[in-house]
Amino acid sequence: MALVEIENLSVEFPTQGGIMRAVDGVSLRLEEGEVLGVVGESGSGKSVTMLALMGLIPFPGRVRADKLSFNGRDLLTISDKDRRKLTGKDVAMIFQEPTTSLNPSFTVGFQLTETLRLHEGMDRKAAERRAVELLGQVGIPSPESRLSAYPHQLSGGMNQRVMIAMAIACNPKLLIADEPTTALDVTIQAQILDLLMTLQKERRMGLVMITHNMGVVADTAKRVMVMYAGQIMEERSADDLFASPQHPYTAALLAALPERSEGGRLATIPGVVPGLYDRPKGCLFSPRCAYATEHSRHVRPDLRPWAGGHIRCHYPLGDPNRNAEIQHDHPVGTEAAS
């Protein structure tokens, strides 16, 4: 039994201009102890997918799915009360901005023991002892004295450690890390990633690493899911994905990495993620795709099995017939036309 099973998940937000589809037909499986990287630009729906799993989609957002289950429990029909028993205990989440994600009016100790007292039924004394242990485990020096500190008295890195301590307090089966290092200094980023990976191995918990940084994925994930405009574009093992990306979007993301730049200017992807009004009829990436054709601009590709993973593309890069197919379909993209 998989830890997480999501089938055909969509999340919509009604806006004044119409319905904004933030997540569009996402399916994924996560086994126990597995590390999944979810990559995509801002607005690609990667955070919203995970917020939907946590049940944290704010009003008036609508969540629809054929299946949404965690550890065998159906999250579509679960009562609010039962759901709250899961969230924060078996599924925990840490966020991008550690300093604003902690409540400024309460001490670190209060916020940390709150979870323990709620889910584990500990008394104040026991919870405080456990909180000190946890702060020690996440590498906070002199944890006893930190209990009475307020978030504004700690650095961003320390606050993220507190967030992690809070998240792992009840030994979750799944930890969702939503861009956990984006707001931190580069030196601290590596420390936090190391800490997360160490904790993941020690506790054998599932870990979903949401990021827009391919480097972070390369360091952490075994399997990668690339998202674009609310849809999964490509999904396969990290090693394969980095060695031979199949989707033009993945390839473009990788080419934009400074480490992969072959001298000269850093590669970029022209254009922006489509919004509410300019959502293409065909492939969502086609307006920015170098290999777009008349066909791909009008017919949206389905997610299909490909090369040990899944892909949503008419012309995967590894397909031997792709050049012929592109020529046949009237190329319009910059690369294909030349």
Binding site: M54, L56, L86, G88, M93, F95, S101, L102, P104, M166
Partner: peptide, 29 residues
């Protein structure tokens, strides 16, 4: 709308506790 309210929800706290404690304490300022 603050991030720490989302955190409080992610901790599985009850709606009442989130509003009467985590939110109100800050809104009172």
């Amino acid at each position: 709308g603050e991030d720490y309210i989302r955190t409080a929800k992610a901790k599985g706290l009850s709606r009442f506790r989130i509003i009467a404690l985590h939110a109100l304490r800050n809104a009172l300022i």
